[in-house]
Design a protein around this nucleic acid. Structure first.
Lengths: 214, 214
DNA sequence: GGCAAAATTCAGGAGAATCCCGATAACCAG
DNA sequence: CTGGTTATCGGGATTCTCCTGAATTTTGCC
């Protein structure tokens, strides 16, 4: 029996997936999360075999949530479920340790097949995403450079800032001092050579850490 | 028996909805469309009672598809299913003749309830969307022009803010007092109901006033 | 295990930005 | 002429940011 945690911010999609997957005898839904932070928490509590993780989620995005899960619970396989075959999302999720990447316009059979594939210890990627990966792979072979890497905490703060949170707001949400958030913000801006929240927001959008809506 | 057509570009969501709705005895799925254009075509061929219409779809978006359907087949009720409670989408769909607007993070019970409500000749709107509509309604009552009209000066300041300019910076560039820029910024944020430079930047990007690069 | 580097946390104080009040002047429509 | 809109500023209280410095925890490596 494969125990599955659903992480997606849209309840009706979660319910749909639950109904679909509950028709499979070897699959059991053990929990649902509607944002990245709670998906990390629930993974620690429920120890599911597979987490089906939406890439774009509020509070803590799917990529950073995946990174935390794969580090804290390496036994748990994360299966990315995304609307986009965008290279940054694919790259980010796989880099964060996701064992698969499927698109939301795939069939239910593909989802169940992906779950069984990652349970068998293999990687599953939707056909529509393969081209993206190959392109990115080739690009990395030619030119491999990573400008300015942010730490996990910094990326987390960056997202909250780009979502419009104030320093005090973020500090309260993370149970940290205002001073700490200030330090993170400053380090982020120093590393990325940004001089305002506006530029920081645009950077976050380009990197897929936040979206223009919401 | 209510005959329903599903229109959404994500196959797995369609399958999920189909599985959910087929559990209802009085609801029957008669077809699926993965873009706006085919939803119009299928509505003409199948004459469903209700079309569940995603707002964002390729080829022909949900708003224009809805407009065509309600003009060609006024007997068919369109029920909008959207990720966003964004005012423009809500307004667009309802203006196009949609008889309901529900969010994707709602429960399945809400969806079936919405279907039965529109079949009874009434309008159904998700609770999370009601506020958006009321706001828009009130705004239309008070100011009979387009929602959120910025003055030229305000748009100018908005752009400079979204490009990362500080208040002092912008004031110097426009040969104005810092106080004046502060007033403009405040008025912009009040008009648009924004609470941070991050949100303001995203708004400017959506409106094409600035770009994510630069 | 142990050491160095990185990451994360926080404080004090000066300066800058913001918020909330109000005000003045130009302009245009009824 | 009156009223609304736009654009321009100021005072003062509050809040945020910037700079310097540092303690603690985690991580990487031999």
């Amino acid at each position: 029996m494969t125990r599955v945690l659903l992480a997606d911010d849209h309840k009706i999609l979660r319910q749909g997936l639950r109904t679909l997957l509950e028709q499979e005898k070897d699959i059991q839904i053990v929990g649902e999360a509607d944002n990245g932070r709670s998906s990390v928490k629930l993974t620690g509590e429920l120890a599911p075999d597979v987490v089906i993780m939406d890439v774009a989620m509020p509070d803590l995005n799917g990529i950073d949530a995946t990174r935390r899960i794969t580090e804290a619970e390496p036994r748990t396989r994360v299966l990315a479920l995304s609307m986009h075959s965008d290279g940054r999302y694919v790259k980010g999720m796989l880099q964060a340790g996701a064992r698969g990447y499927i698109l939301k316009d795939c069939a239910a059979e593909e989802l169940t097949h992906a779950i069984r594939t990652v349970m068998a210890g293999q990687i599953y990627v939707s056909p529509g995403v393969t081209g993206t990966i190959v392109n990115d792979y080739v690009r990395q072979l030619t030119a491999a450079d990573e400008p300015a890497t942010l730490t996990r905490r910094e990326r987390e703060v960056l997202q909250l800032l780009a979502e419009g949170g104030s320093t005090a707001n973020i500090a309260a949400g993370l149970h940290l001092s205002v001073k700490t958030i200030e330090t993170h913000r400053k380090r982020i801006m120093d590393k990325l050579d940004l001089r305002s929240i506006a530029e920081l927001t645009k950077y976050a959008i380009r990197e897929g850490i936040t979206t223009v809506d919401g």
